[in-house]
Design a protein around this nucleic acid. Structure first.
Lengths: 162, 162
DNA sequence: TCCAAATTTCAATAAAAAATGAAAATATTG
DNA sequence: CAATATTTTCATTTTTTATTGAAATTTGGA
């Protein structure tokens, strides 16, 4: 039996459902979860138009979704002999997905936080000594969180690697 | 000098900005970050109408935002002698915030995933043996991720506790 | 217990985010 | 190096999510 390209099966629907929920927890669009879920359960690499047909999503959504998923290293393009189109498969190593997500989404944010803390510090010169003392202790707290965050990501990634 | 209740200072603005960004990373509304940030930097507990006045947000947003933040244990109501209104302060222990977030947002999702996996398994009876084998191995993978996720949360919380 | 203050709820509205699809850009092959 | 297939981009539209504020409910004090 040939692979179904047009109709979506019950199993596919259920698997996609799981990944749509997961995507939403980490703040990613539904379509990202759909595409990843479909590729995760697929038996063969799929082209963009196969993905579009099965999920009934537009060209733009498919293209941008795959782009973002590649940025996370959650999907990769694979070569399929004799085919002109690009074909995609899901990366299914938990540690790689986590690493991609941290690297793309979390770490950049922690870096922005570090920059904002530096903007904040000189502002203490403009407030009363009492208030500066209070503010200073809060800012220190944010600084510790920021460092703890980076450290924690490191530890998590090491833990996942066994 | 009395605490400024109407005007927002530069320091407050910068601190709130940091928490608004942080809220958005974990998929929470801007107003949640604003309220938390304001309480985090405040020198004294604040009432709902003080929060509304400073942030220029509506009654509904303030009430619902505080409700959600209390659910996370990110803010708590404190008793202020002689006052009728509720007064709020920010929980500033990193580990408590993390624990609240995991407990409220991540763990329930992992539990839903476990349920969905059980829905998925019996569907394999309806597909060809070859396909069932492939699907089975994928489902096992999701199952492992689900368990790893719970385990990781546990480890992270233990790590944060020192 | 009654009254007013305080808070919550929720339907309507506003704002933000995601999806669409046509046009532009890029890549492939004969 | 055309001609065409494929992919990307992005202005517009649709959908989703957050906010508002008035009405309903709850709370606390006299």
């Amino acid at each position: 039996m040939a692979i179904q390209t047009e109709t979506i099966t019950e199993v596919e629907t259920e698997v996609i459902d799981i990944f749509v929920r997961a995507a939403q927890v980490i703040g990613l669009a539904k379509s990202i979860g759909e595409i990843y879920g479909l590729l995760f359960i697929a038996e063969e690499p799929m082209s963009m138009d196969q993905i579009m047909a099965k999920l009934r999503i537009s060209l733009g959504t498919a293209s941008q979704g795959l782009k973002q998923l590649r940025a996370f290293k959650a999907v990769k393009a694979v070569y399929v002999p004799g085919k002109r189109k690009d074909y995609f498969t899901a990366e299914s190593e938990f540690r790689k997905l986590m690493a991609g997500f941290f690297k793309e989404e979390v770490t950049p944010q922690l870096e922005i936080t570090a920059e904002r803390i530096e903007v904040l510090k000189p502002l203490l010169k403009n407030v009363s000594p009492d208030r500066a003392r209070h503010y200073g202790s809060r800012i220190e707290k944010i600084e510790r969180w920021q460092k703890n965050g980076l450290n924690l990501i490191d530890k998590v990634l090491k833990f996942i690697n066994f």
